[in-house]
Simulated scan of single mutants.
Amino acid sequence: MARHKFAIGTEVRLISRTWLSPTAAETYRVITLLPTMDLSPQYRLRNDELGQERVSKEDNLSVLPESRP
Rank of each mutant, 00 (worst) to 15 (best):
69 P>K: 01
40 S>T: 15
44 R>P: 01
16 S>G: 13
38 D>L: 14
63 V>T: 13
45 L>N: 01
4 H>Q: 07
15 I>V: 07
26 E>S: 12
45 L>C: 00
45 L>P: 03
40 S>D: 01
61 L>C: 08
23 T>C: 00
41 P>T: 09
2 A>G: 02
17 R>Q: 11
62 S>V: 09
41 P>W: 05
30 V>Y: 01
23 T>H: 03
61 L>A: 02
46 R>A: 06
65 P>Q: 02
56 S>A: 13
34 L>E: 04
28 Y>N: 08
40 S>C: 10
68 R>W: 13
23 T>K: 05
22 P>L: 13
26 E>P: 10
63 V>K: 14
37 M>Y: 11
62 S>K: 03
1 M>T: 13
23 T>L: 07
59 D>F: 06
47 N>V: 08
16 S>K: 10
15 I>S: 12
11 E>T: 08
58 E>G: 04
12 V>F: 08
67 S>V: 04
62 S>F: 03
47 N>W: 05
44 R>T: 03
45 L>I: 02
23 T>S: 12
64 L>G: 10
54 R>S: 11
36 T>W: 04
58 E>Y: 07
50 L>A: 02
32 T>P: 06
44 R>G: 00
34 L>V: 04
14 L>D: 01
51 G>C: 07
33 L>H: 10
8 I>T: 08
51 G>Y: 03
62 S>H: 05
56 S>M: 11
46 R>N: 01
